[in-house]
């Protein structure tokens, strides 16, 4: 280890001025990675909270920083805001050579620190994020083998805000469908057809797990979607899991990004960019596995 260059993981996320829970997934996943010991240092930085994206790199001691955006899709934030705020010299989105789903990493320097920065694609478009969706379904049903006689809905924004957002939803829905584990898999959208409002129309299965492809719980996942699906008339009164809607049982999972296995994808993103993470991927997969529910 004579030539060991110290390595830091920097998880960057949106955060919020209004919602205290917005940054919770980034912090929790950072803790999981920290506990894995795969990095000399693990930090978080936020667009709307502190440390800001502008100042997070100066809190890093390590020589190499692997920056992983805790975002669902490629787009405005991953392509413009984050690289600009981190002052990544010479950044151009062509460095990722991505079709909207295939961003990997780019190695750059930052204008305010003397470090090598490996800027990775977002968590949400990594192939392993499909496993997080499935794990989320296992968590919400308490059944590590869930799938048979179950439908799975993957929910997100439509193309209105970001074309790549819909791409990510379809990508994961297709991959889960191909595995043949669930009876049916359907991508649904909040602002276009097929709409999440009509969720039960799109499934024949009595049981449907609904997983919103969002990083953290907030207005969309806690208010909009539950009311749109008819889980509740008023989000403030809460809803049951599962909840009976139009003769189906809906297992509403909340934001997929809160699932602890997301930490694994963060590590994989950094490993894909060249970080030496040893066997941390396997260990995090084990450590974040849900306890089987008591029968």
């Amino acid at each position: 280890m004579t030539d060991h260059r110290s390595q830091a993981l920097v998880v960057v996320a949106h955060g919020s001025h209004l919602n205290p829970d917005s940054s919770a997934p980034a912090n929790e996943h950072a803790d999981t990675v920290r506990a894995s010991g795969a990095f000399d240092e693990v930090r978080t930085g936020f667009w709307k909270e502190e440390p800001s994206l502008r100042e997070v790199l100066r809190t890093v001691e390590a020589d190499e920083a692997y920056v992983v955006p805790l975002f669902i899709s490629e787009g405005y934030f991953t392509e413009q805001v984050i690289p600009r705020e981190l002052r990544l010299d010479g950044w151009d989105v062509s460095a990722w050579d991505s079709d909207g789903l295939s961003a990997d990493s780019a190695t750059l320097t930052a204008g305010d620190v003397e470090k090598t920065v490996h800027y990775c694609g977002p968590v949400g478009t990594h192939g392993s994020f499909t496993d997080v969706l499935v794990r989320r379904a296992e968590s919400v049903t308490g059944d590590p083998d869930v799938g048979r006689d179950f439908g799975l809905a993957v929910v997100g924004h439509g193309t209105e805000r970001n074309e790549n957002s819909a791409k990510a939803i379809e990508y994961h829905a297709d991959r889960i469908r191909e595995r043949g584990r669930f009876e049916e898999v359907q991508a649904l959208y909040m602002d276009e057809e097929p709409e999440v409002d009509d969720v039960t129309d799109y499934f024949e299965s009595d049981d449907v797990v609904v997983v919103p492809l969002f990083v953290s719980d907030g207005f969309h996942t806690q208010e909009d979607i539950p009311e749109d699906m008819g889980l509740t008339d008023d989000y403030r009164t809460g809803y049951d899991v599962p909840a009976a809607v139009d003769g189906s049982r809906l297992w509403y999972a909340g934001a997929v990004g809160t699932e602890s296995l997301t930490a694994d994808v963060i590590i994989e993103r950094a490993a894909d960019a060249g970080a030496d993470v040893g066997d941390a991927v396997e260990r995090v997969r084990d450590s974040t596995a849900p306890e089987p529910a008591d029968d």
């Binding site: 502190e50 440390p51 800001s52 100042e55 997070v56 100066r58 809190t59």
Partner: peptide, 14 residues
């Protein structure tokens, strides 16, 4: 201190 007041030590030192 960095949890309470992020990056203040780094900026103070700068």
């Amino acid at each position: 201190v960095d949890v309470a007041y992020p990056a203040t030590v780094a900026n103070w030192h700068r």
